[in-house]
Write a protein that binds this DNA or RNA. Structure first.
Length: 862
RNA sequence: GUCCCGGUAGCUCAGCUGGUUAGAGCGUCGCGUUUACACCGCGAAAGUCGGCGGUUCGAGUCCGUCCCGGGGCACCA
């Protein structure tokens, strides 16, 4: 292939995706097609990419979402918008920690705490430089038309400044505070986690009922976590519970210890659950913590950060599970176990990163006070300032945002944005803004912020906030956000919280387009443990990025999960090949895009232009609703069934005829438009074909097609439909008669008004010879009679079977419609157009029955 | 417990405010080379639209209920 963009290069005979796709992206990038221009007079269109983790590699979910964003932005660009699609990556605090720790263990044989904080962070930056960001190259491979000149990283200087700025503002307004609470603690990652980072899983545990105290002062409590009894400081019962009323205020002996704890009354206790009495461990359970606060109970911690028992005594040094076993055994020994239920199904929190069982832990952490922020985030959607697509997913958003609890944002990690608060030797603290210096001798807080804290700023921090940049004023709010519904809580909600706060109540995006999950061919979730994870890179290598993108778009119904498999990618590749061959045909036959379209065209040319303008309109309508699957389906069938199967076949006839010049121009127009319509989905192959066809610079910067209603031609559409009906009927006859496709048959045609030459050519019918003898006769539904000379007996049983089948269908049709018209209720109550339609169908069925019966009678005469 | 989504051909899915003989892709079967294309062409077979009940002249489409699958949230001492 020649690579000169302005010549019309010959297309190789065979479509080879790798050769087509390889050279194009660098060319697009060099020419700056994807670079936004804030000074442009064009209207803006903006999308910020959901920043993949710096540790990440492209998976099918990315491929799906990126293809959608690419399609939206490519189309917007073609429609004349100044497009910003902003790429970047997330620093992924915990994920990087795990990877870097493993990397250091392998390369240097050391653990995290063998390094100083500074050294570890430097190692992490080294790791990022060396192994991070693989996905960026994979995005180019996929064809993402992002503005690389504006690439961002959540830990680069500008974004770090944004983090510090908003932290200080929130801190100054008392929307960030520090408090000791029960938090979700991961004993493996050794950090606090937010509620969103905990997955709750039902699993079999044990429910053990233990008798506390003796004699009159005894009470039975049930627990799944016997080991925490070392930290019990009370037993709680419901204040109205008659069974225990007399015990309230009494102290009981806590087994295995020499402590005595009070029995208290608290509304939180459910009298109908278990024994109606609860052991209270304020330092290791969120509900118990609340009870403890209400009753001013002591809150002893019994485990360290690795969930090892610290209480002096026989259990000290045991892991929480070992301790549970040992303590239950000891209680059993003392005869204090009243009941044991095992297994006992209950929900247990796990670290969403490493799957370790979460330990609720009393801890001093930083929090965002979310009440007012969440209210604003909910109202913005309630007031319609931001909308979800599909709207059915909005309830999930409200469910979360309307019940949000304060957000724990501090993490006991080193890789991330360090909390900008400094402490004096006396324990005073001060929050330091971006341009401020901490007082000499003060020390900074050791913790970093939750990764999602900086992600929440992404729609504006990437555009230069807090500076009032041209980008920020032009591209915020962004036009759309495209992301998976699974990330609604983590990310979308938090961008709403901070976007509305930082940007004076302006939403970060006008529309949130939620995609489903990509599943395997049988609809199962992909997971490493199931071994059904597909690497999109392999599919791209085998069939091309275009084919993979197209197959993903084929299944992309809004908000719905989709199953994918290799067969469909093959099918999508086949479609690209079809386009390739159609374009080759056009080039070989002198199709042109130069000069105006002929004002008057006839026959197939008029028909296909009519269909084309209608398809353009439909595509635009479907884009409004983000119906990617339907757009794909529409274009697929238009291209394959109408353009290739019918128009090109018909064009073969007229190309040689007197209107050949018109047809060459129409053929060029149809392919030109079709390739432009398809470009957002299959950017590579359309670029190669379009430049070959038109000789112009690039379809990336071509204009989006406009429908021309003047080209609508109902008569031409009817004429071709009739032609198709006749051809279809005779083809079926030929097939049923066992005639080879290549066999030419003399025929005589009469009646109707179809293009006889076209019918003859498509059906391989010859002119009748002198000794023509009609051995078969077909009268088709559009009144065309075709007599065929099969030079010998036809297969009478086959023909009778064919006609009988048609007859039965028409009789059923007649009966159904007849019954309706005999029904007074129907005639009396149905609207007139519906009745007219039924009358028409009845008449048509009767005509068909007459026609087919006649044909059967004629057959009987043989 | 509560909320959401889904149950339509062998498989994966479309079917808008109820009104043609319920569609597509892949797969299956038959025929085969008509110079764009076998990564193709032509033809065909294939569904009691999860069950039951209701509203209606008319229900895959609306209502109720049940069954099955997926997911969210809450609780889980």
């Amino acid at each position: 292939m020649t690579s000169a963009p302005d010549a019309r290069p010959d297309l190789p005979t065979q479509y080879a995706p790798a050769e087509v796709e390889g050279p194009l992206y660098p060319r697009w990038e060099e020419r700056g097609y994807f670079t936004a221009d804030p000074t442009s007079a064009k209207p803006p269109y903006s999308i910020v990419i959901p920043p993949p983790n710096v540790t990440g590699s492209l998976h099918l979910g990315h491929a799906l979402q990126h293809t959608m964003m690419d399609a939206l932005t490519r189309r917007a660009r073609m429609r004349g918008f100044d497009v910003l699609w902003l790429p970047g990556m997330d620093h992924a605090s915990i994920a990087v920690h795990s990877l870097v720790e493993r990397y250091l263990a392998e390369t240097e044989g050391k653990g995290r705490f063998d390094y100083s904080r500074e050294d570890f962070v430097n190692k992490a930056w080294e790791w990022k430089a060396r192994y991070g960001g693989q996905i960026l190259g994979q995005m180019r491979r996929l064809g993402d038309g992002v503005d690389w000149t504006r690439e961002r990283f959540t830990m680069d200087d500008g974004l770090s400044r944004a983090v510090q700025t908003i932290f200080k503002r929130l801190y100054d307004e008392d929307l960030i505070y520090r408090a000791e609470r029960i938090i979700n603690w991961c004993p493996r990652d050794l950090t606090a986690l937010s509620d969103a980072e905990v997955d709750h899983v039902d699993e079999p545990g044990e429910l053990v009922s233990i008798r506390y105290g003796d004699g009159d002062a005894a009470i039975v409590v049930a627990t799944t976590r016997a080991e925490t009894m070392l930290g019990d400081t009370a037993v709680a019962v419901h204040p109205d519970d008659e069974r225990y009323r007399h015990l309230i205020g009494v102290e009981v002996a806590l087994p295995l210890t020499n402590r005595r704890i009070p029995i208290i009354a608290d509304e939180h206790v459910d009298p109908s659950f278990g024994t109606g009495a609860v052991k209270v461990t304020p330092a290791h359970d969120p509900n118990d913590f609340e009870i403890g606060r209400r009753h001013d109970l002591p809150m002893p911690t019994v485990m360290d950060e690795r969930a090892v028992i610290t209480t002096p005594g026989p259990y000290q040094g045991l892991d929480r599970l070992e301790a549970r076993f040992a303590i239950v055994a000891a209680l059993r020994e003392e005869g204090r176990i009243v009941a044991e239920k095992r297994p006992y199904e209950h929900s247990v929190g796990h670290c969403s990163r490493c799957d370790t069982t979460i330990e609720p832990r009393l801890s001093l952490q930083w929090w965002v006070r979310v009440e007012t922020l969440a209210k604003a985030a909910g109202d913005a959607v309630r007031e319609g300032r931001m909308q979800f697509e599909p709207p059915e997913l909005a309830p999930r958003y409200f469910q979360w945002v309307d019940n949000l609890r304060d957000w724990c944002i501090s993490r006991q990690l080193w890789w991330g944005h360090r909390i900008p608060v400094w402490y004096s030797p006396d324990g005073d603290d001060v929050c330091i803004g971006p341009d401020e210096e901490p007082p000499a001798g003060w020390t900074q807080d050791e913790d970093v912020l939750d990764t999602w804290f900086s992600s929440a700023l992404w729609p504006f921090s990437t555009m230069g906030w807090p500076e009032q940049t041209p980008e920020l004023s032009r591209y915020y709010p962004t036009t759309a956000l495209v992301t998976g519904y699974d990330i609604l809580f983590f990310w979308v909600v938090r961008m709403m919280l901070f976007g509305l706060y930082a940007m004076d109540g302006e939403v970060p995006f006008q529309t949130v387009l939620l995609t489903g999950l990509v599943r395997d061919s049988s609809g199962k979730k992909m997971s490493k443990s199931k071994g059904n994870v597909v690497d999109p890179l392999l599919w791209m290598d085998a069939y091309g990025a275009d084919a993979m993108r197209l197959s993903l778009m084929q299944g992309a119904n809004p908000g719905a999960d989709q199953a994918v498999n290799e067969e469909w990618v093959v099918g999508a590749r086949n479609f690209c090949t079809k386009l390739w061959n159609a374009t080759r045909f056009a080039l070989q036959n002198g199709a042109t895009v130069d000069g105006p379209l002929p004002s008057q065209v006839t026959g197939a040319d008029a028909w296909i232009l009519s269909r084309l303008q209608s398809v353009v309109t439909e595509v635009d309508t479907l884009y409004e609703k983000y119906e990617f699957a339907k757009i794909t389906d529409l274009l697929y069938h238009f291209a394959w069934d109408e353009v290739c199967d019918w128009y090109i076949e018909l064009a073969k006839l007229s190309l040689a005829g007197p209107s050949g010049a018109d047809t060459r121009r129409v053929l060029g127009e149809v392919l030109d438009t079709l390739l432009r319509l398809l470009h957002p989905f299959v950017p590579f192959v359309t670029e190669t074909l379009w430049t070959a066809l038109t000789g112009r610079e690039s379809v990336v910067i071509a204009d989006w097609p406009l429908a021309d209603p003047a080209r609508a031609d109902a008569a031409a559409e009817t004429a071709v439909a009739q032609l198709q009906a006749v051809v279809g009927e005779v083809r079926r006859f030929r097939s049923d008669q066992g005639l080879k496709p290549s066999q030419k048959v003399p025929a005589r045609m009469s009646g109707g008004s179809v293009d006889e030459a076209a019918v003859r050519a498509l059906l391989r019918l010859e002119a009748p010879s002198d000794d023509f003898t009609a051995t078969a006769s077909l009268t088709t539904a559009v009144g065309v009679r075709v007599e065929l000379d099969l030079s010998g007996a036809i297969d009478v049983p086959a023909e009778r079977a064919r006609l009988s089948k048609d007859l039965a269908a028409q009789q059923k049709e007649r009966d159904v419609n007849n019954a309706k018209l005999l029904n007074d209720n129907f005639v009396g109550k149905a609207p007139e157009p519906v009745i007219a339609k039924v009358r028409g169908r009845l008449a048509a069925a009767e005509a068909e029955i007459a026609r087919i019966s006649a044909a059967l009678d004629a057959l009987a005469g043989r």
